[in-house]
Design a protein around this nucleic acid. Structure first.
Lengths: 346, 346
DNA sequence: TTGTAAGCGTTATCAG
DNA sequence: CTGATAACGCTTACAA
């Protein structure tokens, strides 16, 4: 590989001149510039990244920490992951993927060795070790999520307490008093995956305040989920529920929709459906479902922007928290029971 | 950040001693080792990656080039991607993600600047620019796929010509003479995504040789796909077909299975189903489907192993091709029409 | 067993 | 406008 010296020799100038031609940090005669550029092209010269970094040039790499578990919700996962990669690229940063078992160790290694300039933490749990140890990373860190312990990093997330309240209020306002909750993957509950739990608690609290009754259905482990059983139980157990709140992934929810369709149960005329903390966009659904979605594009954008600002501005972002207000997407699957005539809400 | 000099000072030794303690390249007294290790722990010292690299130490990073299109089959995509990341990690390499528009430019940049030690190309098309320009990359490159032009890189893929023959033979041997082909996403055909096209051509050729009739159904664009129409057309158009060969993703195929179930069409008694070049494992299907699957684990493993060997052994792998023989996964969805009594094949 | 010093490929400072 | 050179943090001959 040709180095800067080779270029200098070929162009008949000094190495510093070559460097300055590339960096535009001092004025160079047109003639010299031309000769140098020719030599660069001729030799296919690309500056060595390590040498540049040793001289203080940023390498523009951010680490993306994403645990790979067997039970992840791929669609949602991907939406966040791909969008974060896209935002990074857009800000002219490369992405170094950290997926191993020893997440904390890996992050410490890549930050302390100056391999990366910053860190994004994805798929955050309530007790997230990566976030808890963020103070030991040598570079600014932002978590997409809201872990309990987060002194060392910034946090960007949807305000899931608000999502819970909004969900309860939304249904209450439309006359629903008995709802059934189709829980997310139980693994996520066991792991206390941050948002899943926060939404759940907030929604249940709010429902109780309002005097709504919430029946929980939890067999949403994908491998074991049985839509037939769910629909059966839902309508056999007193048959009081007028609405379903779903945390389940698209495929599971769609099975429920299908099963109801088969049984002649209409949405929203017979039962309303509201999906919360999900990402149904682009999924193949039997019918559109009103949703309080997660917002991968927005969160990824905020996370990367904040991180890049910190990297380039040198300001610390440790401890910062930005909780975004949820936005409900009306898709006509919730019935307004208080409306005259009993027509759908949309 | 503490450097090697700080450690040396704290331990009361020279910098070379610290370096040798870390690298074990010469014997150090127990006492000195202890003092140095203490200082390292005390100061949280981690060697600077750039400085090491400048001295010829490998940085153990491979670039993973994966285009992000709107229409990718996420499940399959992920299986490859996650597995490749896992294999890399397992071989002690970090992964630098390249997802941008200017894939060739990015690969040239990260290889020539010595940022990475090798490159893996994913989601290869028949005319793949990345593979065609592989000779211009400064590091060994392996493509997971089989592009037309591949002089500059190694190729690892399933032998899709064999898959096509196997599919036709498998059904022919079991007495099927009229089959319907549920094509993959049309985008993949338009783009001439390598394997999709190779399978298709090979299967059609073989079917013709055998005198089988193949009816093609191509509305498998996820957004527009209509299982009802498909099943209707399949059984109205003469109703001759005894089997479906599917290239479609799990969700699309499952819709078809559901629609047939609703209509009382039994699998495999009334119609057989064979899925080819897909990755149904872990997908939620109405019933198991016999499959000639892609093999993400195997291909990722082979690709990373080959690449790492080349990096560490210094041997060129340009032009190498490794086509893996397909393995059929029997899951009882294909009926053996030649068997006495007409029972299912499994 | 340990220390000294050269040098990796850049950038920036200081002279011209 | 351009050139020589120190310095970045580390590894590794070469000396002791």
């Amino acid at each position: 590989m040709a180095g800067i010296k080779d270029v200098a020799r070929a162009a008949g100038v000094s190495v510093s001149t070559v460097s300055y031609v590339l960096s535009n940090k001092r004025s160079i005669s047109a003639e010299t510039t031309r000769r140098v550029m020719d030599a660069i092209r001729e030799l296919d010269y690309t500056p060595d990244a390590s040498a540049q970094k040793m001289r203080g040039v940023r390498n523009s790499i951010i680490a993306l920490s994403m645990p790979i578990r067997g039970d992840i919700n791929l669609a949602k996962y991907n939406a966040y992951f791909l969008r974060t990669a896209w935002e990074a690229k857009n800000a002219d940063y490369d992405v170094l993927l950290l997926t191993g078992e020893d997440m904390v160790g890996d992050i410490q290694r890549v930050t302390r060795s100056n391999l990366v300039d910053g860190v994004v933490l994805m798929d955050i749990e309530e007790d997230d070790e990566r976030a808890a140890k963020a103070a030991t990373y040598a570079k600014p860190t932002v978590a997409v999520g809201y872990p309990l312990s987060h002194d060392g990093c910034a946090c960007i997330d949807i305000d899931f307490v608000q999502v819970g309240c909004q969900a309860a209020d939304y249904l209450y306002d439309r006359g629903h008093r008995n709802v059934i909750l189709l829980r997310d993957n139980e693994h996520d509950y066991e792991r206390r995956s941050g948002y899943v739990v926060m939404f759940h608690e907030s929604m249940m609290d709010r429902a109780e305040e309002l005097g709504m009754s919430v029946l929980e259905f939890s067999k949403t482990d994908l491998a074991r989920f049985d839509a037939v059983e769910f629909v059966h139980e839902m309508f056999s157990d007193g048959g009081m529920a007028t609405a379903i709140i779903s945390q389940a992934p698209a495929s599971v929810l769609d099975h429920v929709l299908k099963e109801m369709q088969v049984r002649g149960i209409r949405v929203p005329e017979d039962v309303s459906v509201l999906s919360c903390g999900t990402f149904l966009e682009g999924e193949f659904m039997t019918r559109p479902v009103t949703e309080i979605p997660v917002m991968p594009e927005l969160l990824a954008h905020k996370a990367v922007s904040l991180l890049v600002d910190s990297i380039e501005g040198g300001k610390s972002i440790a401890g910062m928290v930005d909780l975004v207000s949820p936005v409900i997407q009306e898709r006509g699957s919730v019935m307004d029971l208080t409306a005259e005539g009993g027509r759908g809400s949309r």
